[in-house]
Simulated scan of single mutants.
Amino acid sequence: MDRRSLLRTAVVAGSTAALGGSLWRTAAVAAPAQPGAGPYGPLSAPDSNGIRLPKDFTSRVIARTGQKVGSTGYTWHPAPDGGACFSAEDGGWIYVSNSEVAPGGGAGAVRFDARGGITGAHRILDGTRLNCAGGKTPWNTWLSCEETDRGAVFETDPWGSKAAQRRPAMGLFKHEAAAVDPDRKVVYLTEDESDGCLYRFVPSTWGDLSAGRLEVLTMGSGTSGPVSWAKVPDPAAGGTRTRHQVAAAKHFDGGEGCHYADGTCWFTTKGDNRVWQLNCAANTIELAYDDDLVRQGEDAPLSGVDNITGSASGDLFVAEDGGNMEICLITPDDVVAPFLRVEGHGESEITGPAFSPDGKRLYFSSQRGADGSSSDGVTYEVAGPFRG
């Protein structure tokens, strides 16, 4: 019996499939999300942009690599990756997007008015390499993360008015994503290595990321249970990589997206196709989704887990790197289902999912487009009746 069949059998034998998500959140062992009908219904035929969406949702192209954004003079960057939205004083917003190329990298931004019209676009970061994902801070900066050996976090201004700042105190490693926890005043960081770690950065002064303490998650074997945090002796990794400095560190197979909401840090690992949930107050961890634990006889709807974000309803939106180019959602009731699919982009990946401040629009990119090239990236907006 292969690993997938063995694990599925264990789920059925333990009667996990018979219990709902709310029960399992209070139980000793978690029941990862299972396939089911999504809250928005089935996907319709592809629209004019090649995107399959639920009924009453529409899409539009915001930007294409190498082309001017709308009527602005700004040329959109190659390989658009992680992104986030920021509220503007005039009722509009800004969508920022990383560029995962080397050399070049960096990040750009698109400005929208209160009705969603594009009013501008600009550069917010230059001179970096392979900027993959990142995270939004409560003080309205964008943390752009380099996915390189001994890569750094750069704190940027979405408006492009202030110079970006390198934040080496947050560790030099193969960064992927960041998620800010304002309750415990820490920043969680994922690492894209096959034996990567989950870190948290504790700033010396909240709101200032120039100094602080880098810690790594520690725990025993398994996928659920209590966790602890240990200080990383040398965040600059002058001799030993950060992930190898603490013997008790928990290693994860390819850390990807990271999202914080309501006391939970959600993060994905692509090597084993899992979505994890860290209870930040209780310092416990469990699986929210694992394609090996889908019920016997059912297909796993989510594969190639990557960037992750959340909506006001508590739904998680998980983008696929490969797979069948879907964004899948995981509901608070532990149901996983496709939300959209991009057709004809089989050599690409979905990146940068982020909601507008009012929650009515979802932005994302096909990083390498239909051609499978970093020079063919496309950034989209989806609008519709998202539940609040």
Results as ranks from 00 to 15, higher is better:
38 G>P: 06
199 Y>H: 13
357 P>Y: 12
385 P>Q: 08
325 M>Q: 11
209 L>A: 08
374 S>N: 15
276 W>T: 01
181 D>R: 05
278 L>V: 09
330 I>M: 07
89 E>P: 02
231 K>E: 06
134 G>T: 03
346 G>P: 00
115 R>S: 14
387 R>G: 11
385 P>T: 10
139 W>H: 12
376 D>Y: 13
284 T>G: 04
151 G>C: 07
21 G>P: 06
76 W>Q: 08
379 T>D: 04
317 F>I: 01
102 A>E: 13
370 A>V: 15
303 S>M: 09
249 A>G: 09
66 G>S: 03
137 T>W: 13
136 K>L: 02
372 G>H: 02
350 I>M: 06
167 R>H: 10
31 A>L: 00
181 D>N: 12
316 L>P: 06
78 P>A: 12
56 D>H: 11
307 N>Q: 07
339 F>H: 03
211 A>N: 12
231 K>R: 07
353 P>A: 12
18 A>N: 15
214 L>V: 07
27 A>M: 11
54 P>S: 13
381 E>Y: 07
62 I>G: 05
3 R>Q: 10
383 A>V: 12
156 T>V: 10
268 T>W: 02
340 L>V: 13
102 A>N: 11
262 D>W: 02
10 A>E: 14
208 D>P: 05
282 A>F: 00
267 F>P: 06
252 F>S: 02
136 K>Q: 09
199 Y>S: 08
248 A>R: 04
110 V>L: 01
54 P>T: 14
105 G>L: 05
207 G>N: 06
383 A>N: 02
186 V>M: 09
90 D>R: 03
238 G>S: 14
163 A>G: 11
342 V>N: 05
17 A>D: 15
232 V>F: 03
364 F>I: 00
57 F>G: 03
136 K>I: 01
62 I>P: 00
349 E>I: 02
257 G>I: 07
304 G>Y: 14
128 T>V: 09
64 R>I: 01
41 G>V: 06
74 Y>H: 15
268 T>P: 03
245 Q>W: 08
22 S>N: 14
74 Y>T: 00
152 A>F: 02
46 P>R: 05
335 V>A: 01
87 S>Q: 13
